[in-house]
Simulated scan of single mutants.
Amino acid sequence: VEATASTGGQLMPPIMGAAAFVMVEITGASYLSIITAALLPALFYYLSIGAMVHFEAGRVNQQRSARASWPEMRRALVRLPPFLVPVAVLLFSMIYGYSPILAGFYAFLALVVVTTVRKETRLDLSGWIDALVFGAKNAALIAVACATAGLVVGVIEVLGVGLKFASAIFSVSNGVFFVTLLLVMIGSIILGMGLPTTAAYVIVAAIAAPPLVNFGMSPVAAHLFVLYYACLSAITPPVAIAAYAAAGIAGCDPIRAALHATKLGSAGFIIPFAFAYYPGLLLQGSWGDIAGAILVGTMVIFGLAIAIIGWFTRPMSLAWRAAFGLASLMMLYVTPWTTVVGVIAFGALITGVYLSRPKEGEAQKESVPVFEGTEK
């Protein structure tokens, strides 16, 4: 769960790591248009993780957390707002057209003010020195990764690998849009494996995004498509560096952690295909298109979560799981009649699950174990 959720942080506006700032420079689009387009797909990604975690908790009969822990949560939420000030400064600076460097500088100044005003977060001289050293080390790592990625991109341009990659995709896909998306997805995952997000994005933006733009996708949509799979390579076996890091903390098998992370993040592998066919997910088009995309997308997320985890108010049989999965895939298909049939099938399945639930008395009777020799 940790590896999957942390990977999605690179896809969630308004920050999106450093990749969004690089995307502004490469695509020429405004920062506001990029974070607006990325908002709904990122929310769907986390909605799918939340649904799968909830259904998995129900499947293993995990008890809810005690109310005694709620005061700690409230105290944490009370302490949170001041630290949102630098984020807000960074966001509005980028929206108003400042460069990423200048916006980051203003956000840093806001962070200094916030930490100085509050007594519990105020730093002394040694604290500031440690913070600056820590920041310089992290900046150096990012700079080296981006410089290396820049060299790779330069070699690619000189050798014409990007054009060869695009022509190879078109020849293999034979002009079929879905096959093109599938090949670009595979290429982006392979190119992004083992790299930091920004470096991975720089490489896939130079190699994998141009074929999609040439196919007619908007530059923002094409670059978000390849960014998703460059990020998801962090939880995709066999490399899965995020899953390996999480497994090191948890003390578990890294391959099993990667497989579970891939299962929990499975919707993330489908969302880019969805917004490639439904621009409403990128908040593009009419209000009707956007509302329809949100409604269908929500049902698809829950349908896939039920099919993958196998639980919804009660354990699901293989037939129920297959039915939910089929209905979700039908809603994803681009022809209107399959979408309508998928929506109707999903509604019928949800209704069937609720109508077929055992009554409260029967459920309680079944849950009480009966031992030999026990009096009735």
Rank of each mutant, 00 (worst) to 15 (best):
A3Q: 07
A3F: 05
A5P: 02
S6W: 02
P14Y: 11
P14A: 10
P14M: 13
F21E: 13
F21Y: 15
V22A: 11
V22E: 13
T27R: 03
G28P: 00
A29S: 15
S30V: 00
Y31N: 03
Y31F: 13
P41Y: 08
Y45F: 08
V53A: 07
E56K: 15
A57Q: 08
G58V: 12
G58C: 12
R59F: 04
Q63C: 11
R64N: 09
R64F: 06
S69F: 09
S69G: 06
E72K: 09
R74H: 05
R74M: 11
L77V: 04
R79H: 11
R79G: 15
R79P: 03
F83Y: 11
V85R: 00
V85G: 00
V85L: 07
P86W: 06
L90V: 00
S93N: 14
M94G: 07
M94W: 05
Y96F: 13
G97T: 13
S99E: 06
I101Q: 07
L102S: 08
A103F: 02
G104H: 02
F105W: 12
Y106H: 08
V113Y: 01
V117G: 11
K119R: 14
T121M: 10
R122V: 06
W128K: 05
W128P: 05
I129C: 05
A131P: 08
L132D: 06
F134G: 14
N138Y: 08
A140I: 05
A143C: 06
V144C: 02
T148V: 08
E157F: 06
E157H: 10
L159I: 15
V161P: 00
S167H: 07
I169K: 00
S171Q: 14
V172Y: 11
V172K: 04
N174M: 14
G175L: 13
V179Q: 09
V184T: 11
V202F: 01
V204E: 13
I207A: 13
A208H: 00
L212N: 12
F215M: 15
H223G: 09
L224S: 00
F225A: 09
F225W: 09
L227D: 12
A230K: 00
C231F: 02
C231E: 08
S233P: 09
A242T: 06
A245F: 00
A246W: 01
A250P: 02
G251L: 04
I255F: 09
R256L: 12
R256P: 05
A261M: 11
F273L: 04
A276S: 12
G280Y: 01
L282E: 02
Q284A: 10
Q284L: 10
G285T: 04
G285Q: 06
G288P: 03
G297A: 12
G297Q: 06
T298P: 09
G303D: 00
A305N: 12
I308M: 03
G310L: 05
F312S: 02
L318C: 12
A319W: 13
W320N: 03
Y333K: 08
P336L: 12
T338W: 02
T339N: 04
T339L: 07
T339F: 04
T339E: 03
V343T: 11
F346Q: 04
G352V: 14
S356K: 09
R357H: 01
E360T: 13
V368N: 08
V368Q: 10
P369H: 10
V370L: 13
V370C: 10
E372M: 14
